[in-house]
Design a protein around this nucleic acid. Sequence first.
DNA 1: AAAATAAGTGTAAATGTAACACTTAATTTA
DNA 2: TAAATTAAGTGTTACATTTACACTTATTTT
Lengths: 230, 230
Amino acid sequence: MTIYDGVHDKNFVAIDSIIFGFDQGRLKLLLIKRKMPPMEGQWSLMGGFVGSHESVDDAAYRILENLTGLKSIFLEQLYAYGDLDRDSAGRVISVAYYALINIDNYDEELGRKYGAEWFTMDEIPSLVFDHSTMVQKAIRRLKRKTIIQPIGFELLPPKFTLTQLQQLYEAIHQKEIDKRNFRKKILSMGVLNKLDEKDKESSKRGAFLYKFNKEKYDYLTSKENLFDFI
Amino acid sequence: MTIYDGVHDKNFVAIDSIIFGFDQGRLKLLLIKRKMPPMEGQWSLMGGFVGSHESVDDAAYRILENLTGLKSIFLEQLYAYGDLDRDSAGRVISVAYYALINIDNYDEELGRKYGAEWFTMDEIPSLVFDHSTMVQKAIRRLKRKTIIQPIGFELLPPKFTLTQLQQLYEAIHQKEIDKRNFRKKILSMGVLNKLDEKDKESSKRGAFLYKFNKEKYDYLTSKENLFDFI
DNA sequence: AAAATAAGTGTAAATGTAACACTTAATTTA
DNA sequence: TAAATTAAGTGTTACATTTACACTTATTTT
């Protein structure tokens, strides 16, 4: 019946993480320089193998924590890559995840250990294996997802100004957004809480700080199916 | 550094297929009755293991062909499921795919061999392991995707009436659609070719048949990024 | 010839999105 | 201490998209 029945085969399963950050108005990607063959010295996504006594999600969190020191962050499965020759070292199936982190919480010490560096989106070098494909898909997913869900907050500090939030959206979508329309839309979602504090860093007048309202967000996502993406 | 480093572990990787069909105005799902432990006699998605000498996509196509006899059909990766205890027989990571097939081309002979049956969406029995979760996700994906891309055609015969197409959309989205608005929108997409033939099965007057224009669709999807979903 | 059946068609209201420029608060400098 | 500087903050109109809504037409059956 079936020409090839692979019932008794096991395979290496790996994780690769597309790690997004946001700094100085620019969207960034965390890459590491490979310290082992194959492709030693080439830029790569952070990755590792899935053990047989941990879930795939747990492996993704574990690997991300190794590099960033961060535990509870936004991490979502992107796609499973399964071409036979995708990894030149042999047959490895890789489940790609993308993470959104607040760059302030990133552990630079750890990063140095892995030879990690942040790259702005227009300066991403060519990557090993099919990692560039993964990054492309992650960017598309991020663009789409931020239209529907306000996940962008994950990339900002807990308190942020509307201007910062707008700059983030502009960085993700790579286009200018009208200030009035942006504020109208984002505030109408009702997931932002205006604080009494002002940020005086970037202007003389000072801009009000806002906080993401997770409770309201969770309520909306549970109530309506609209926000539900995948 | 890392508490658990699973570098040297291999894992079983499986495929599970959510197979959609459309018949008599109803969206349907193809399920099989398990003929082996665990969960013998329980309803399940069609599945199989990924061999170490085939790509994950190839495995998905192979397994689908086994059951349906169909080779070139719409098949798209849904999600990789990796909980430790998801399969009660042991540690198996499963990559779920969903398929859209024209039910006329389905090989009933083969289906009988596997104990396969078509279920309408409101009659889906409880399924083994995490298969119900997979089905839920596939339905959500299908709903979303048909809003953006006209992939619904995959479920219809090559020639179809606008009424049939509308019934398909109504079945997927589980709500009535206004006939005039539906026709306006679907025709404005410009991916349908009206034929000179009429279908006289369902009305005395007869309804014009249409054909999906793949060339135009491919052109649009390559040109504009709009249709691009994931 | 009349009845029955599903196919086929257009317009107006409502909603959502996009375009557009000036005022205000606070600090710095002259 | 008044003028200049800087980014924050704010509404309205035009345009596009989506929704709501009902009758006529072609053909077959009785």
